[in-house]
């Protein structure tokens, strides 16, 4: 019994230490990057192939950054329709109001695709995987077991492409930075778990940089003049290289689907508030 208070103290100290690294320094790489690089295995900065686990930022359920650009009247009107569904502790200043459970309207609760860039900001399924071929880089996402094509064969972005959840993307190397430009997004998705809106005019400019063998850094710049009065530049996001998936018994990329019938059964059988009025039960698929 004597060990319990000691344990608690140790736990709290560890938590506070890790929390400060995890949550407070989201814009800085962890540790001494030069020292890490000196001891890390050799790597090719143009080699992205592999499994990447979302690192210390964003932890999930985060917006691109805590400072969302001012919205246009169109964007604000769209944001006003959001019925928030969970706590927004990461960036409360830009959170939508949390609504009663029977009013939640997060499209992902209906098992709609996360879309891009939201798939990078979700709390669950924090893995992505790159495979590079001669004419494209394929970015796989654990959530939904889906992917997007990033064409690297020299083609230019298409003007007014068919709208999709994951957009139309072209990429090229600028030195050691992999630059991706995307458009053609459907406006059905939320930009992030906070319900931040976007229109079908949204374009993304992304820079991926493998800073050392084990770490990948990403910055997303969202430009959508229909929704925001200026571009929205994300905080730096970090991903840790993984030799295998830590989230699958088979050590493979997990089939992490949102299955509508499972979702409905969960709300029906377990969730105490949503048993009779959960949003997933109020709609047909």
């Amino acid at each position: 019994m004597k060990s319990r208070p000691t344990c608690l103290v140790v736990a709290v100290v560890v938590v506070l230490t890790l929390s400060s690294v995890t949550f407070a320094q989201t814009a800085q790489p962890s540790g001494d990057t030069k020292a890490q690089t000196a001891n890390a295995p050799a790597f090719d900065p143009h080699e992205l192939t592999g499994v990447w686990v979302r690192g210390k930022a964003p932890r999930g359920n985060a917006p691109l950054s805590g400072t969302r650009p001012p919205m246009t009247p169109w964007g604000q009107a769209k944001f006003n329709t959001v019925k928030g569904s969970f706590s927004y502790s990461r960036s409360p200043g830009i959170a939508p109001p949390v609504a009663p459970e029977n009013e939640w309207n997060d499209p992902m609760l209906q098992c709609e695709p996360a879309g891009y860039p939201r798939v990078m900001l979700q709390i669950y399924a924090p893995l992505m995987r790159f495979i590079q071929t001669s004419n494209e880089v394929v970015e796989f996402f654990e959530w939904g077991h889906t992917w997007r094509d990033i064409w690297t064969d020299g083609r230019k972005p298409i003007e007014n492409p068919e709208p999709t959840f994951y957009g139309y993307s072209v990429g090229h190397w600028d030195g050691d930075t992999f630059v991706v430009d995307s458009n053609g997004f459907t406006d059905r998705t939320w930009t992030d778990p906070y319900g931040s809106p976007h229109s079908d005019q949204m374009v993304l400019h992304e820079t991926f940089r493998r800073v050392d063998h084990d770490h990948l850094e990403l910055v997303i710049t969202l430009t959508d003049p229909k929704t925001y009065t200026k571009p929205w530049v994300s905080d730096k996001m970090f991903f840790d290289w993984a030799p295998k998936s830590p989230r699958s018994e088979n050590e493979e990329f997990r089939e992490d689907f949102c299955i509508y019938s499972d979702q409905a059964n969960f709300f029906k059988n377990v969730d105490p508030v949503g048993a009779s009025d959960a949003p997933v039960k109020n709609k047909t698929q």
């Binding site: 560890v14 938590v15 995890t22 999930g60 359920n61 569904s85 459970e101 969730d271 508030v273």
Partner: peptide, 14 residues
Amino acid sequence: VFSGPVVAHHGSQG
């Protein structure tokens, strides 16, 4: 460390 966000996935108010 990992508790905060997970409990927030869906309603825990019940």
